[in-house]
Simulated scan of single mutants.
Amino acid sequence: MTVNVPIEIDDQFTELIVQQVLKQVNENEAKDPLASELPPYPNRKQVKRVLKIGDDRLNDWIAHGLLTIPFGKELRFDREDIRSFLDQQKV
């Protein structure tokens, strides 16, 4: 047996939900520069610029396990690897 119950959602309620979701997305982007500024496979210069760190700190992260991707003469990083590494460092 199937019962169909129509559900009507008020336009004001829908708009309220949309506004709350947009607010949360904007707050998350503001908190996480990796999500909005770093390309998927940034080079050293891009990582240092966005995260506002120097060569010493980046080299230290690499020495402590941050994965790198050899790309010709330069190193690249996976944005998700950086995020995971930083999340592990917070613990």
Results as ranks from 00 to 15, higher is better:
M1H: 13
M1G: 15
T2D: 13
V3D: 12
V3M: 07
N4P: 04
N4K: 14
V5W: 10
P6H: 08
I7C: 09
E8R: 15
I9A: 11
I9N: 07
D10K: 14
D10Q: 13
D11R: 11
D11M: 09
D11N: 11
D11A: 14
D11I: 10
D11E: 14
Q12P: 00
Q12M: 11
F13W: 05
F13P: 00
F13C: 09
T14H: 05
E15W: 06
L16H: 10
L16M: 15
I17A: 14
V18I: 15
Q19Y: 05
Q19W: 01
Q20E: 12
V21Q: 08
L22N: 14
L22S: 06
K23Y: 06
Q24V: 06
V25W: 04
N26E: 11
N26Y: 01
E27Y: 07
E27C: 06
E27W: 01
N28L: 13
N28C: 06
A30Y: 04
A30P: 00
K31H: 08
K31N: 09
K31S: 04
D32I: 06
P33W: 05
L34T: 02
S36I: 12
S36P: 00
L38R: 05
L38E: 07
P39D: 09
P39T: 10
P39M: 03
P40K: 11
Y41P: 01
Y41F: 15
Y41C: 08
P42A: 08
P42S: 03
P42N: 08
P42M: 07
P42W: 08
N43I: 05
R44G: 09
R44Y: 03
K45F: 06
K45I: 04
Q46G: 02
Q46V: 13
Q46S: 12
V47D: 03
V47H: 04
V47M: 09
V47T: 13
K48D: 03
K48S: 02
R49Y: 10
R49P: 00
V50P: 05
K52C: 10
I53W: 06
I53C: 08
I53K: 03
G54C: 09
G54L: 10
G54R: 12
D55L: 13
D55I: 15
D56G: 10
D56R: 11
R57A: 08
R57L: 15
R57Y: 07
L58R: 07
L58Y: 10
N59A: 02
D60T: 10
D60G: 00
D60I: 02
I62C: 04
I62Y: 03
A63D: 14
A63W: 01
H64S: 04
G65I: 05
G65Y: 04
G65R: 03
G65Q: 04
L67N: 09
L67I: 08
L67D: 08
I69L: 15
I69F: 11
F71M: 14
F71R: 12
F71A: 15
K73C: 00
E74T: 15
E74C: 10
E74I: 15
L75K: 11
R76P: 09
R76T: 07
D78L: 07
R79Y: 06
R79K: 15
R79A: 13
E80V: 10
D81Q: 02
I82S: 02
I82C: 05
I82H: 00
I82K: 01
R83C: 02
R83N: 10
S84K: 09
F85M: 07
L86P: 01
L86V: 01
Q88Y: 00
K90D: 00
V91P: 00
V91D: 04
